[in-house]
Write a protein that binds this DNA or RNA. Structure first.
Lengths: 243, 243
DNA sequence: TAGTGGTCTAGACCACCGT
DNA sequence: CGGTGGTCTAGACCACTAA
């Protein structure tokens, strides 16, 4: 079909859009296999190569996972390797492994202030859930987070649910609320520990900490989580690969 | 050609290796066009599609740059869009533009200590160059860096060369020493400004700063630069996209 | 208009996985 | 073994750039 130039989008992108749509609709769930490339090609009336290119892109974006000989899977935060996919903090020694543990502190309902509303793209005053937690590496508290969630998407989230769940928050959000975190954006500054942070992370007041603000997005760049955290970098550091 | 399985590497990766080799040998220089896909296919006796896949990977790695209708170019730090490719610090307002300016402070010869030697993979005691500089956004000093370079690769680098050059360091390193920075790894902590840092960045002693340690690699994951910097995050922040 | 990269197809064969 | 993704090829056509 002819296309006016500014709107031009190659076939494989349109296919990508259709697959994304099927994912959003819940046709295929996280952790499950999606149909084979041949089947998808038949369904969308294109060649296998075109489906392949669409899937290639989505695999590069961590939306799908290819497994040779088995099939293509919907990426899931339930997968141990994906659980702390967005956490860049690693222990000073041994830059690998050492999965942290999330300890909920409290969790309550509130109304969105202007900043939360802007970031989450909801109405000021709309219901939100605020959640505080600590991340421990081994025994030590290293990260303190305050997390803002639009209530509409997390209906039923409470302290008990958090305490029962002994895995990552995103795996909880995915399994209980069907939310898939696709990408995130972090803004990092250095701050001095205030009294609350100092207590939380068991450091002296005034200790330099990383202040990490994160906005997390689902499909279609829709923000579904806002968190503000402080990281203690006495025995850990934030590791970033630049390409 | 048949291959025993653990050593198996697809054709397009071997082509990638050959192109990389040509780049390292200086056959095509940064900013220049490389031969067309058809020509490369003929040269390596493979199909255009195979060359294409090799180039696709290298473009994804920021080693090559495709330009439809014009050709494929060797990525260059001379390109204004690539100059501060590894710098993640952005002004509080307007997350774009605002290129900083690099001001050299001093530059001298020294012998590699054990840490520098380990990081740069050279012999302890080998000659290195140490360089200090400040990055200014507008009039304000925001970043202070101490940069360690193996002398062997940067022979002739001195204060005068730095003062004459009014662009990014990596574009200098590329044009004068033929070095191409491919990727880098940063370790970030929060620290309190010591006296030197406080003077350099015009902040109070004790102000929390980001401590950013970077190792930069060329082809073949060979480290060619080590820098330790402090970033003032009063009016700027470190922006990181997580995918 | 000629030359480049970008898309799309169709088909063959290989590597890997489960049964 | 059959089915999946992974590689490789050959060829047609489209979109963009420069002269």
């Amino acid at each position: 079909m002819a296309q006016i130039s500014p709107t031009f989008s190659p076939l494989y992108r349109q296919i990508r859009g259709l697959i994304l749509q099927a994912l959003e609709s819940g046709e295929w769930r996280p952790g499950q296999v999606i149909p084979s490339e041949q089947e998808l090609a038949a369904r969308f009336n294109v060649s296998q190569g075109t489906v392949r290119k669409a899937i290639d892109e989505m695999a590069a974006d961590n939306i799908l996972v290819r497994r040779q000989g088995r099939g293509t899977y919907v990426a899931s935060h339930t997968d141990p390797r994906q659980m702390f996919r967005f956490l860049r903090l690693v222990p000073e020694e041994s830059e690998l492994l050492a999965h942290p543990k999330s300890i909920p502190i409290d969790c309550w309902r509130a109304k969105a202030g202007s900043e939360a509303a802007r970031v989450l793209r909801i109405e000021p005053g709309a219901a939100i859930i605020i959640l505080r937690r600590v991340l421990q590496f081994g025994r030590k508290p290293v990260v303190g987070d305050e997390i803002y969630l639009p209530e509409e998407l997390y209906r039923g989230l409470d302290m008990e649910m958090l305490q029962v769940w002994n895995s990552s928050l995103y795996s909880l959000f995915e399994t209980r609320f069907g939310l898939r975190m696709i990408r995130a954006k972090e803004r990092i500054r250095a701050v001095a520990a205030d009294r609350a942070a100092a207590e939380l992370l068991q450091v002296d007041e005034g200790t330099p900490l990383l202040s990490v603000e994160r906005v997390t997005y689902t499909y279609g760049d829709r923000p579904v989580e806002w968190r503000r955290g402080v990281y203690s970098t006495a025995e850990h550091f934030y590791l970033n690969d630049l390409a």
